[in-house]
């Protein structure tokens, strides 16, 4: 069996695992990882399609699409992480502001 089908099926499986992870977890970073994994799954399917070419030389168009896809996926992952980071900071400040630190403690004014 031409190996492309194996990789395509594995890509589809990764896509499903990613989407399930995305919609079932609550932890923000986990959900961002899940969307990145689902993205990798779709891209592996695209490249697996490119390798079906009988002439042995893979079809370059899906490769270009996947290059664009990876850049888009990295941008959205990095943006998601930046937003999650800022939200964690604001929540920490809000939590720290709401209950005053017990003693002088390490917390600065």
């Amino acid at each position: 069996m031409n190996p492309w089908a194996v990789y395509a099926l594995s890509g589809v499986a990764m896509f499903s695992v990613g989407l399930v992870g995305l919609f079932s977890h609550q932890h923000v970073v986990k959900r961002i990882l899940a969307s990145n994994i689902a993205g990798s799954g779709v891209l592996i399917v695209l490249v697996a399609l490119a390798r079906r070419a009988p002439s042995g030389v893979p079809d370059p168009v899906p490769h270009a699409l996947v290059l664009t896809g990876i850049v888009v996926s990295v941008s959205s992952t990095a943006l998601g992480v930046a937003l999650a980071r800022r939200m964690a900071r604001l929540r920490a400040d809000a939590a720290r502001a709401s209950e005053p630190p017990p003693g002088s403690g390490g917390e600065g004014p």
Binding site: R85, A88, R89, A92, D93, G106, E107, G108, P109
Partner: peptide
């Protein structure tokens, strides 16, 4: 940098 326990400036 950027960790929560960093004392605020």
């Amino acid at each position: 940098p950027g960790s929560d326990k960093e004392p605020r400036p």
